[in-house]
């Protein structure tokens, strides 16, 4: 086992715990960016450079900016933990133990005969160059062609989310004073 992987995993765990323990929201958001970047590095080691690039750009970049701007708009940097903190820990430990018990049946890491590897991945790798007229990146071929409808659905989701954000944040100056008392129905 690689020493770099161990260092990376230790850093990931420390960052996650730090985010859970930090009271200051600003620092927690910064640590979220670091966490995203570390997980992108781990994805790079796990042979998924495309996902690593996207995670570094979206997770460490865009989502950090979005959270910082939300914090600036709400203007509340402090986070007070709940009084009784043993109940969440109990739930989390029990759930985690159940999941760990579930992993005992999983195929070992990197096993070439794991069910995931048997079908249909080899056929994609074998056929994509011929099907895509010499496109070297199999992930691109899969994303844009074999699973093109997935990508179409994804763009639909992004469009819907964009419209929804615009509608939620829109402030009509005429209605602003009139709808102020009755606007409380939305967050319920």
């Amino acid at each position: 086992m690689n020493i770099i992987v161990f260092a990376l995993l230790a850093l990931l765990a420390i960052t996650a715990v730090a985010i859970a323990r930090l009271r200051e929201l600003w620092a927690a958001i910064m640590f979220t960016g670091i966490y995203s970047f570390l997980s992108a590095s781990w994805m790079m080691i796990l042979d998924a450079p495309d996902v690593a690039f996207t995670e570094a750009a979206v997770g460490a970049g865009i989502s950090t900016v979005l959270m910082l701007s939300t914090m600036a708009l709400t203007g509340q940097g402090e986070d007070i933990p709940r009084k009784s903190s043993w109940m969440p820990i109990l739930i989390v430990v029990v759930t985690g133990a159940t999941l760990v018990y579930g992993t005992l049946d999983m195929p070992a890491l990197g096993a070439p005969d794991a069910p995931v590897q048997l079908y249909p991945s080899p056929s994609y790798v074998e056929r994509s160059v011929e099907d895509m007229h010499g496109l070297p990146n199999v992930v691109t071929a899969l994303l844009a062609s074999y699973r093109g409808y997935d990508t179409l659905g994804e763009t639909t989701v992004v469009l819907t989310a964009g419209i929804a954000v615009l509608l939620i944040l829109r402030r009509d100056p005429k209605e602003a004073s009139a709808t102020e008392p009755s606007a409380g129905d939305e967050p319920a």
Binding site: A48, D50, V51, T54, E55, V58, G59, I62, S63, L66, M67, T70, L73, T74, V116, P120, S121, Y124, V125, V138, V139, L142, L143, R147, D150, T151, G153, E154, V157, V158, T160, A161, G162, A164, V165, I168, L169, E186, P187
Partner: peptide
């Protein structure tokens, strides 16, 4: 390559839902 493709889609959908959640927080 298949998990990579699925996760590329999931990351983009994830940022869309995060943006929506943060907009609701602002509201």
């Amino acid at each position: 390559p298949l998990p990579s493709v699925l996760m590329l889609t999931a990351i983009v959908v994830g940022i869309a839902t995060t943006a929506l959640a943060l907009a609701l927080v602002v509201r």
